[in-house]
Computed example of a mutant assay.
Amino acid sequence: MLNIGCHLSVSNGYEAMGKDALSIGANTFQFFTRNPRGGSAKAIVKKDVEALLAIAEANNFAPILAHAPYTMNLCAADENIRKFALEMMADDFSRMDYLPGSLYNFHPGSHVKQGVEVGIDYITEALNKVLYPELKTTVLLETMAGKGSEIGRTFEELRMIIDRVELNNKLGVCMDTCHIYDAGYDIVNDLDGVLNEFDRIVGLDRLHAIHINDSKNPFNSHKDRHETIGNGSLGLDTFKKVINHPKLRHLPFYLETPNELPGYADEIALLRGLYEETV
């Protein structure tokens, strides 16, 4: 079965997200833990979360993916921003305990002209403070497109972070198809080569999720603008290869395309139609 969902809003509650997922043919979903631009999160209502967990169990959901706010920058030049990011992540982890076995994805951050080494030092320092042995969530570093001073544009940068984190058994990677193509990994013409490189540097055992997005920009553009599936520079044939690849097909896929629920429903139906149940 193709495990696929899209990005849903938590504003109406956890149970509502589960129902929205079912209404569009999804069997998982992604959501922001709080406003994507930062700020405080809504209080957890235990009955609401329990209702979602019941929906997920009854419908054999793949792991649900929580996404940290875009403004959370663990390697900012400003110490106060770094402190706020650390506090936000710690709060998110405590909230994720209500969804055991789920995933938590974050953008590694932007070093803001401090340099990659300094940025990675700050990121790993923060992760070493906030990760704890009893954490029930797998924390994912997202592959980035490389715009500005983003960290995570190369597999090597992700590996550097992982190697410097003490509890790195809690860490994994979320691969974004738009981002890695924009970053210079040619999944259109050499998907096998890219996956082999990822396996050599990071390890495919670390890959827990795929953000499945087309790109408005050309290869190696180092930009980050998502496009609907099949309508960008990656093209529909690439997505057929990705979802059916023997090294990827078992993973959960999460759409972040510029869509509302009806558009997501169409994309999910499209991708399910391209998925080969037996390979």
Rank of each mutant, 00 (worst) to 15 (best):
L270P: 11
L234Q: 08
A76E: 10
N128Y: 00
Y185L: 10
R95N: 08
A43S: 14
E15H: 13
G119R: 01
A85V: 03
L2Q: 03
Y104F: 12
D266T: 12
P252T: 00
G152C: 05
P36Y: 06
A209W: 07
L22S: 11
L270Q: 12
L103W: 07
Q114D: 13
S102C: 12
F29R: 02
K47W: 00
N35C: 08
K136F: 06
H222I: 05
M160R: 13
I123H: 06
V173Q: 05
E134P: 06
R37P: 11
F253D: 02
G172W: 00
N220S: 14
L195A: 01
G25R: 00
R164E: 02
R225C: 09
G146R: 02
N128P: 04
Y104A: 03
P69N: 09
H250S: 12
K19D: 04
V242D: 07
D20N: 15
P69H: 12
H67N: 03
K47M: 11
A265E: 14
R153D: 06
M89I: 08
I55L: 13
L207T: 02
Y275T: 04
E166R: 08
T28F: 03
D192S: 09
S221D: 10
M160Y: 09
R159I: 05
N220M: 14
F93V: 03
Y185S: 09
D163V: 06
L270N: 09
H250W: 03
N169Y: 11
A54G: 06
K147R: 11
E125H: 14
E117Y: 06
K170R: 10
L271Q: 05
R249S: 14
L270E: 09
L141C: 01
F32L: 09
K47V: 13
S149A: 12
K216Q: 11
R153S: 14
T177V: 04
F198V: 11
L22E: 06
A41K: 12
G109C: 10
K83A: 14
A43I: 09
K46I: 14
T238Y: 11
D182E: 10
K19F: 07
T154G: 06
G152E: 01
L8C: 07
K241M: 12
T138D: 05
N169T: 12
S9Y: 10
M1P: 12
D224E: 07
I180Y: 08
R206L: 01
I161Y: 00
N35H: 13
E157Q: 08
K223C: 13
G25I: 01
V194M: 10
H107S: 01
D121G: 14
R200C: 14
E260M: 12
Y70C: 07
D190W: 10
G101K: 01
V165T: 03
L127P: 05
M144C: 09
H179G: 07
P252Y: 01
Y70M: 08
L131T: 00
T257Y: 11
K247P: 00
M88N: 15
M72I: 11
V112E: 15
I64N: 04
L251A: 00
G184L: 05
I162G: 05
